[in-house]
Every structure is written in structure tokens, then in C-alpha cells.
Design a protein around this nucleic acid. Structure first.
Length: 705
DNA sequence: CCTTTAAGCG
């Protein structure tokens, strides 16, 4: 009975059953029941108590029972207790060694496990399939490919390859290391394969971004009538998400529901939540999440990430708030990595800093993922200095934190500094990847560093053998175009070895907007509407160009073109965080509780601005209306409402941080310069493109934007 | 008695 409970994972029931038996029946347990119940204890916590019972009933000389105790203690990481028992063992068989080693392996304690292994070798005891399987698992967990390969050599030398467990462990290990060839070779050599073998090889391809081969293997597995289990389904969910196959997603969901697995195991539920989120069906993800009988931290993390990745940052923040209300759910590293990007996205600095505090409390501040998210958060919330000093305190062996800090410097317009940090990266021996160069090129383009950008683009290909992607090309067009070299940018596009996409033509069109090139903008927009006719942003951009040069008929044409395609202008909004709360303003907003005060403040400001020489630039208004009306439209732009709200709601002369979902309008940019001078405040505006730091009537970007 | 496969995040 006890062992039946253990096999089905009901450890509490196993232990309770054992105690009931012990205390009521008066019959001595035998040497078979103790090992089972000790295994249950190893999965929970009260092993000490059970150890007492072993001693009380005189079972400590039983080899099996003693080995179980050793395993339990080494699994908890109680080195000395395990060792003491081990040294006192009457007989040391293979099982005792394995008990000790596997305990450490299951604990993730690779170093200890390998130490015991050395000892075992010194005593002339050879590894058996059990030892090997345990060790291979821990090598893959701890990324120790060297030890893993050595063990594989041992396996070949001693003919252990034919063992099912050993082969399965090898497939898993090679999958973890990304060597799919080796994993496949082991799989092909196997004479007998069980469901674990199939799951392992399917997961190998699925986890290494090869969903098509993974799916093929799944079909093969069904053909030879191996029944898929829960773990197969977990891989399957990820496969269909990678293939963005919504319909198959629904089938996988149905398959799992029919088998009742969704109610049985939280892991598969989480996998389905993640699958729907990745397929963009965030509402389905929410529904599955709500229906889960048990939710753990990963369930919550998956939903938060799902919202954040679908661009729904406020929903992600709301879900995190709900998660905090469930005291029994303890947020972990994954939670911070899910929620921090959402805070970055809306500029919720104060809330992000609260997370920073918790991260330090949980000693997770040295985690590369969390550290990178924090750097990104500080950078994107306008605290560049904090982002930089934090960067130097987190591990930076991989390119990931470097990419984040370079990108932050770029959006703040510090191109030179970004290049300097890139140089530091090379000096420290960190290899740049394709993301590094996207960050770097965009940093150059924001700062007008044309030559440096071209140098980076060449170096990327010649020294690092990275083939430029559309993102890189887009950055280059932006770099040349912004700097006014429109002809060069256009020739650059013509010479591209791959088909330019909308982002590339969009960069050219954006440059035309800045430099007012009517002819080229017409040409660029024609190409643009061929490849991406449904992006409303480009119609607005083109309207801006036409309005600027007074081509009202052309503007009307663009408008009706967009209208005929059923497109509506993305509403502009700006947000500001005051007292841990994010307020959002839409252009022309009349519903905010402080609405009247905001418009009054703007009226007062505008008068002062005009006396200092501010002239509204009416060319930024797309509507063909009277000048008075145009001026009013400019004044009610969302960024201006947010700034005015900031002025009346925060202490005098304190810094104001604004977020805008689209690009800041040129007139608002000019106006903010005046406002910063009048109110003696630093005003930091982050728009969809970059940061603008306004202070004493000037902007850090030097109007290069 | 001791052995293999699990979901989220840059």
C-alpha cells in the first residue's frame, strides 16, 4: 500500500498510511516498507523523524534501509549525515554508492556527486547503468559538457549503450547541449525505444527551434503505436505554438482535455496557457488559466508573460497585482522576468524599483536574466545612470546584458558611449551576436554617427560572419536617411541582397518626413503599401509629409486610401506615473478628474511660452482647419496633457517622466523645451523611438531625431 | 534500495 502511494506520487498519503500501520497494528514493518516510505520522505521534509523510527526498530543494519537513508540525506544536501551513515554501512554494494550519488544528482549537486564518483573509482568499483544515468542527468543540468562526453566515452568502452535508461539520458543531455546530431545518433542506435526515448528526441528538436522535425517524429511515434503521454503533450503544445498553427493548438487542447490531463497536472495546464499566449489567443489562455484546478507560480508567470508579449502591459501588471494577493503563491525569478518588461513598457519606474528591492531580498540580483531586465527597466524609465551602474554589478559573460545596456544608451542618444561599451565588451572577450549589432546600429543612427555605423555594419559581416537581417538593413537605411543622405539610403536599398520589407521602406519614408522630400516619399510609400498595406502608421507618416508641404489633395487621397482599407489611426496616448499609479492621457482627453486644472495650466503656460518666443508650428496638424483650431489641437496633444498633469501633481522643480506610444510631435518637442525652462524642471519624454531629455530650454537630442 | 523525459523569462 505504501509503495503504491509512492509510485503514484502521493507522498503524504504514503507517510500517513505508514504511521497508521506502525501505531495501530503493532506489527513490525519489514525491510521492504522502510525504503518506500523513506523515498516518500525524501520528496517531502520529515526524514529525521523516520530515521528515528528506523533506529528504534533496529533497521539501521539492513542494507536496503540504510541505502535509502543515505539517498534521502544526500538528496537534501545533508552531506555529513549521508556520509556518516555511508561510512557505517555494513556492506557497501553498488546500490549504496548509487544511492549516495543519485541523491546528490537529484539535488543538482554536481560537484559533490562527481567527488563521490572519484572515491568510488579509487576503491575500484565500476559505474553501472544506474550510476551513469544519474550522472548524465546532472551533467546536463549543470551544463558540464566535458564530464558528459567523458561519461559517454566510458559508456561506449564498457558497452553500456544498450541500456535503455543510459541511452535516454544521453539523448536528453545532448539535446540540452544543443548537439542534435549526437542526440539523433544515440536514438538511431537504440534497439529498444520506450515512450521516454520518443519524448526525449521530440523534445530535443522542439527545444532547439526545430518544430517541423519534432512534429515528424511525433507522427512516426504514433505510426508505430507508441502511446503519447503527458510529457509528449507538453512538447506538442510548444511545437504548435512555434509553428503558429492555431487550429492544431485547439486540437492539442482538446486531446489533453479528453484525457483529463488538464485537471491532473499543473505542468500541462501551464504549457497550454503558454501555447495560447504564443498563438496570440490571449483570451483562450486566460480562460484555460481560470479553469486550472491548481495554479502555481509558473501558471501566473505564463499569463503575465502572455499579456506582456501581446503588447498588453497594463493587463500584465493587473495580473501580477492579483498574483500578489494570493499569499500562498511565491513569486520567483521567472515572475520578475515577466513583470519587469511590462513595467519598462509603460514606464512604471516606482513599481519597477519595488521589484528591484524584492530581487535583492531574494538574492536574485546576480541572476543574468533578472539583472538584464532591471537594466532595461531603469534605462527605459529614464534612469540611465542607474541602468549603467547596475550593469557593472551583474554577471556579464554573455552578450545579453551588453545588448540591453547598448540599446539603452542608443535610445538615450548616447551613440559614442554605446560604441565605447561595445569596445569594452570586445576587450572582456564577450562575443557580440546579431542582437548586439541591431542595438549598436540603432545607437549610431540616433546620434547621427554615420561613419561609425557603416564601420559596424562591415565589421559585423567581415569579422563575425553575421549575415545582416532585415532589422540590420532597416537600421542602416535609418542611419543614412536621418543624416539626410536620402540618395545613399535609396541606393543602399536597391543593392540589398534580400527583399526589403516594410520596416526598411518605412525607415526611408521616415527620413523623407524629416528632410521633406516629396518625390522620394511618394515612391517609398508606393513600395511600402505593396508590402504592408495594413499598417496605419505609414499612412499617418505620409499624411504628415503632405500636410507639411501643403499638398492637401494628396493628403485627402492617402486618407481615403486608408479609410477604404478599413484602417483607423492608432490613438496617441501618453502616460505618467504619479504616486505609484500610472495615469494615461489620450489626445483631446476631457474625462480626467483633473481635466479643468490641466487645461488651465496649459493656457497659462502657453501665454508664458509665447512671450519667450514660442511660435506654434501648425504644419504638424493634419486637419485642414482654421489656425485657431489648429493651435487648440496642438495644445491638447496627449504628451502636453500628461506634462501639465505632472506639473500640477508633483513637487515644484521635480523631474517629470512621460511616456508616449507614438513619436513625439515636433511642435510638442519645441513646446517642451520652453516648458522645461519656465518651470525649471527636467522633463524626460520617452516616445516609441527614443528618449528626449529637456532641461533649461534645450533637448539632449539637439533636435536630431 | 539506487537510474532517464516537464512548463514560464533575455
Amino acid at each position: 500500500m505504501v509503495s503504491a502511494y509512492v509510485r503514484s506520487g502521493r507522498f503524504h498519503d504514503a507517510i500517513n498510511c505508514f504511521y497508521l500501520f506502525l501505531l495501530t497494528s503493532g506489527v513490525r514493518p519489514d525491510s521492504y516498507s522502510f525504503p518506500s516510505v523513506l523515498k516518500a520522505c525524501g520528496n517531502l521534509v520529515d526524514g529525521k523523524k523516520m530515521h528515528c523510527w528506523v533506529l528504534k526498530l533496529g533497521f539501521e543494519w539492513d542494507v536496503f534501509v540504510a541505502a535509502s537513508l543515505v539517498h534521502m540525506y544526500s538528496r537534501f544536501g545533508f552531506l555529513s549525515a549521508a556520509r556518516k551513515l555511508f561510512n557505517n554501512m555494513p556492506v557497501r554494494d553498488m546500490g549504496s554508492w548509487n544511492a549516495m550519488i543519485s541523491g546528490f544528482c537529484q539535488n543538482g549537486n554536481a560537484a559533490e556527486a562527481l567527488e563521490v564518483l572519484d572515491e568510488m573509482r579509487l576503491e575500484g568499483v565500476k559505474m553501472d547503468p544506474v550510476t551513469v544515468s544519474s550522472l548524465l542527468a546532472v551533467c546536463s543540468q549543470s551544463d558540464d559538457s566535458l564530464s558528459g562526453m567523458l561519461i559517454h566515452l566510458y559508456v561506449i568502452k564498457h558497452g553500456l549503450e544498450c541500456d535503455l535508461f543510459v541511452s535516454n539520458a544521453l539523448i536528453n543531455m545532448y539535446a540540452k547541449f544543443g548537439s542534435l546530431g549526437n542526440a539523433q545518433r544515440v536514438f538511431d542506435q537504440m534497439e529498444v525505444r520506450d515512450v521516454v526515448s520518443w519524448n526525449s528526441i521530440i523534445a530535443a528538436y522542439e527545444q532547439n527551434d526545430n518544430p517541423i522535425i519534432a512534429l515528424g517524429l511525433f507522427n512516426k511515434m504514433q505510426l508505430i503505436e507508441i502511446q503519447p503521454d503527458l510529457l509528449t503533450a507538453v512538447s506538442l503544445a510548444s511545437i504548435v505554438a512555434q509553428l503558429s498553427d492555431c487550429q492544431s493548438g485547439r486540437s492539442v487542447h482538446g486531446f489533453i482535455v479528453r484525457r483529463g490531463w488538464l485537471m491532473e497536472d499543473v505542468v500541462i495546464g501551464n504549457a497550454i496557457v503558454d501555447m495560447y499566449a504564443k498563438l496570440g489567443a490571449i483570451d483562450s489562455a486566460r480562460t484555460v488559466f481560470e479553469g486550472l484546478p491548481v495554479k502555481d507560480a509558473i501558471s501566473w508567470n505564463s499569463l503575465i508573460t502572455g499579456y506582456a508579449q501581446n503588447g498588453l502591459a497594463s493587463e500584465a501588471i493587473e495580473v501580477y497585482r492579483m498574483m500578489e494577493e494570493h499569499k500562498e503563491i511565491i513569486p520567483n525569478q521567472g515572475t520578475w522576468v515577466s513583470i519587469l518588461p511590462a513595467y519598462s513598457h509603460v514606464g512604471a519606474l516606482q513599481q519597477g524599483m519595488r521589484i528591484h528591492g524584492r530581487v535583492i531580498k531574494n538574492s536574485l540580483y546576480l541572476d543574468v536574466f533578472v539583472g538584464t531586465c532591471l537594466v532595461d527597466m531603469y534605462g527605459k524609465c529614464g534612469r540611465l545612470d542607474d541602468a549603467l551602474s547596475l550593469f557593472y554589478h551583474i554577471p556579464r559573460m554573455s552578450s545579453v546584458p551588453w545588448n540591453a545596456v547598448i540599446s539603452c544608451l542608443g535610445i538615450h542618444g548616447h551613440g559614442e558611449k554605446a560604441l565605447k561599451i561595445f569596445n569594452e565588451m570586445l576587450v572582456e572577450g564577450v562575443k557580440p551576436d546579431h542582437v548586439t549589432f541591431v542595438s549598436l546600429l540603432s545607437a549610431c543612427s540616433h546620434s547621427g554617427l554615420v561613419d561609425e555605423g557603416q564601420w559596424c555594419f562591415r565589421m559585423m559581416q567581415e569579422e563575425y560572419g553575421i549575415k545582416p537581417s532585415l532589422k540590420h538593413y532597416g537600421c542602416m537605411v535609418d542611419l543614412l536617411g536621418r543624416a539626410g543622405r536620402l540618395e545613399m539610403a535609396y541606393n543602399f536599398i536597391k543593392n540589398m541582397p534580400i527583399q526589403p520589407d516594410a520596416s526598411v521602406w518605412g525607415a526611408l519614408l521616415g527620413a523623407c518626413r524629416i528632410h521633406g522630400n516629396y518625390e522620394l516619399s511618394t515612391f517609398a510609400s508606393d513600395r511600402l503599401f505593396e508590402v504592408e498595406p495594413e499598417n496605419v502608421g505609414y499612412y499617418v507618416l505620409l499624411s504628415n509629409i503632405y500636410a507639411n508641404v501643403g499638398k492637401w489633395e494628396d493628403l485627402d487621397k492617402v486618407r481615403s486610401l486608408a479609410r477604404n482599407r478599413g484602417l483607423r489611426k492608432t490613438p496617441g496616448w501618453s502616460s505618467i506615473e504619479v504616486n505609484n499609479k500610472v495615469d494615461v492621457f489620450y489626445t483631446g482627453n476631457q474625462t480626467h478628474p483633473k481635466c479643468e486644472e490641466i487645461y488651465n495650466e496649459l493656457k497659462v503656460l502657453t501665454t508664458k511660452m509665447k512671450s519667450l518666443g514660442y511660435i506654434p508650428d501648425l504644419s504638424f496638424v493634419l486637419q485642414d482647419v482654421e489656425d485657431d483650431e489648429k493651435e487648440h489641437i496642438l495644445t491638447s496633444h496627449s504628451e502636453r496633457l500628461a506634462i501639465a498633469f505632472g506639473i500640477i501633481s508633483t513637487p515644484l522643480k521635480s523631474t517629470i517622466r512621460i511616456f508616449k506610444n507614438l513619436r513625439v510631435c515636433g511642435d510638442c518637442h519645441n513646446a517642451t523645451k520652453f516648458i522645461s525652462r519656465i518651470t525649471e524642471r527636467e522633463i524626460i519624454v520617452r516616445d516609441s523611438n527614443r528618449f528626449h531629455h529637456f532641461k533649461d530650454g534645450i533637448c539632449s537630442c539637439g533636435d536630431y531625431w
